[in-house]
Computed example of a mutant assay.
Amino acid sequence: MLSPLLAIIVTLAAYKMAMYAAARFPIIQPVLVASVCAWFIWWVINGDWDAYRLGGDWISFWVGPATVALAVPLAKQIREFAHIWRGVLLGVGAGCAVAILTVFGLGLLFGTDDVLTKSMLTKSVTTPIAVELSKNIGGVPALAAFFTALTGIVGIAFARPLLALVGVKDDWAIGIAVGTSAHAIGTASLNRVSQVQTAASSVAMIMAGVVTAIYLIPFSL
């Protein structure tokens, strides 16, 4: 029991250090730095990855409630959302379709294994949904979680700079783009920037989970 508890402490400490570093150096991506730090510290002091997985399961349990908590900013912006929900739904639907088609395109280009492709199809939705969808369509949940985290890290690194480069400045547009492509990790990163962007990203993330599940129905039959 001590090793899983130690794994939780190491993970939280690594994330705290990463957040402190990111506060001083904004270019740093906390999730990426925390992952590397946690891996290195655990490799040095223990190295039992089965025990670390058990500790990670306790943390993963709270991912769902934490994701739901991201809807709080949306509640504050609900009146504005009521006027634009059709456009939001259209944008999220198009974004989810592009995410899935991109995976198929890359799979064909590089000749990836069918199981690997199915594990990547859910990469743009939040982790709890991605894992369950991956199980239903024949993917590997662990790989799905990895690709989901990787997508979120890449999203927070490039989404906002890329949107700024092409001239997208509207808070709702930025939030919808980030929430659709970078799920909870991207949404959490916006919480330090704008409550409106966080609200938009939250609703996009929720819609993306539903829309992606609908798109993937043929793969679960």
Rank of each mutant, 00 (worst) to 15 (best):
N191E: 10
A99M: 13
L74W: 01
W85F: 14
I8Q: 00
D170C: 07
A34W: 09
L12Y: 09
V115R: 13
A200T: 02
W49G: 06
L32G: 06
A130F: 09
V203M: 15
L2G: 03
L89S: 12
R53D: 15
V92L: 10
L5T: 08
A14R: 06
V44M: 11
M207A: 15
P26R: 00
L162T: 07
A94H: 04
P73W: 08
L106W: 09
V193A: 08
R24I: 09
A38H: 02
I28T: 08
V178A: 01
V88M: 12
W62R: 02
V210P: 02
T102N: 06
D48G: 09
I8T: 04
R53N: 14
D114F: 05
A173E: 04
F81Y: 14
T102K: 04
A188D: 07
I129T: 07
I206N: 00
Y215L: 13
G209T: 07
G56Y: 12
G47K: 11
V103H: 00
I129L: 13
V98N: 03
H83N: 13
T180Q: 03
Q77G: 01
P73F: 08
W39K: 05
I27N: 02
L133M: 15
K135T: 13
L121Y: 05
D171A: 15
W58M: 11
A204H: 05
V33T: 12
I9W: 07
T112D: 12
G87A: 11
G107E: 05
G91S: 11
K16L: 12
P30T: 09
S35A: 13
V31D: 00
G167L: 06
G139N: 09
F40M: 11
P26V: 05
S201M: 09
L163A: 02
G111C: 10
W39H: 04
I100H: 04
I27H: 04
A66K: 03
A145W: 04
F81E: 08
A182T: 08
N136P: 01
A7F: 08
I153K: 03
T126Q: 10
R79H: 13
A142I: 14
G167P: 03
W49L: 14
S35P: 06
G152M: 07
T102M: 14
A177W: 00
T117W: 02
A66Y: 01
T102L: 15
Y20Q: 11
M17T: 14
V196D: 02
W172H: 06
N136T: 10
G209R: 01
V211A: 02
L54G: 05
V154K: 01
A182R: 00
V211K: 00
P4T: 11
G175H: 04
F61Q: 09
I8E: 00
V31N: 06
N191W: 00
L89C: 13
T11F: 09
F219W: 14
L54F: 10
M120Y: 04
V203L: 15
L106G: 06
